[in-house]
């Protein structure tokens, strides 16, 4: 087993212990508190916060993946190419909207809670997935396309059996980017009462407790790093398979 895998396993173990039994780490975080402030956030269960955090991220990224991949497939078909410039421009402009502005503006329409965060993460996830799917679908080797056509595959068969599988590693790269951004951005959702790990950080900001800010930030950072590395491993395996197939 390589060093890199060992470090990640250790990180995962630490993360799991912290989420289930945070009190174990109390002596460490007590180093950052002053005047006897509580070292560990106990107002709500960390594990349930983390699970809810990830549920929001996964829902938003899944939605963004379906829409962005669907849109990219659609505008790369000859009949719908007139939508290509617009969808590219829109995905680009969507990315310039600051997440906090999207959150704040979604509140009057959807109320406080998980909803506005879902919308903001969804909008933010679209561009990387869309761009990567476009790159993946337009950089396929022409010889493979020709061969598929020569074998008498229909347009639909080519899309499902040739184009999408070959583009999959690049598409996954986009999904990875969106997921990592979403994991970190979801914390801002707690300013509008979404139940995410941001709650811990904000409690720290409000009560001037560095230990809370630190544990919230570390947990979210660790999850993001682990998810990122997981995706990278998956992409490698996929592109190896695409290369053989």
């Amino acid at each position: 087993m390589s060093m890199a895998i060992l470090i990640r396993l250790a990180m995962l173990a630490l993360l799991a212990v912290f989420l289930v039994q945070p009190e174990v780490f109390a002596p460490f975080f007590a180093l950052f508190t002053t005047r006897g402030a509580p070292p560990i956030y106990v107002q709500s269960d960390l594990l349930s916060l983390a699970l809810n955090h990830m549920a929001i991220v996964v829902t938003a990224v899944l939605g963004a993946t379906v829409i962005a991949v669907g849109l990219a497939v659609l505008v790369t078909r000859p009949n719908w190419s007139e939508f290509l410039p617009l969808s590219r421009a829109l995905a680009n402009i969507g990315q310039t909207f600051p997440p906090i502005a999207v959150l704040a503006l979604a509140v009057p329409a959807m109320g406080f809670g998980n909803g506005p965060t879902l919308v903001a993460l969804f909008l933010y996830g679209l561009l990387p997935i869309f761009e990567n799917t476009m790159t993946g679908l337009s950089n396929l080797p022409p010889t493979v396309q020709e061969a598929a056509r020569g074998m008498g595959m229909s347009d639909r068969q080519r899309l499902w059996q040739v184009e999408l599988p070959l583009a999959m590693p690049v598409i996954l790269g986009g999904v990875r980017l969106s997921t990592v951004i979403a994991i970190s951005t979801a914390t801002i959702g707690s300013t509008v009462a979404a139940r995410t790990l941001g709650e811990v950080i904000i409690a720290g900001l409000l009560s001037n407790n560095i230990a809370f800010i630190l544990q919230g930030g570390l947990v979210v950072g660790a999850i993001a790093v682990l998810v990122h590395d997981g995706f990278v491993a998956l992409e490698r395996r996929m592109s190896r398979r695409a290369g053989q197939g």
Binding site: V180, T187, I201, L205, I210, L214, G217, L218, G221, A224
Partner: peptide, 14 residues
């Protein structure tokens, strides 16, 4: 980049 922005903002205070 993976540490959430609000945490970085907060951690720099001390």
């Amino acid at each position: 980049q993976t540490v959430p922005s609000i945490a970085v903002f907060g951690l720099l205070i001390a």
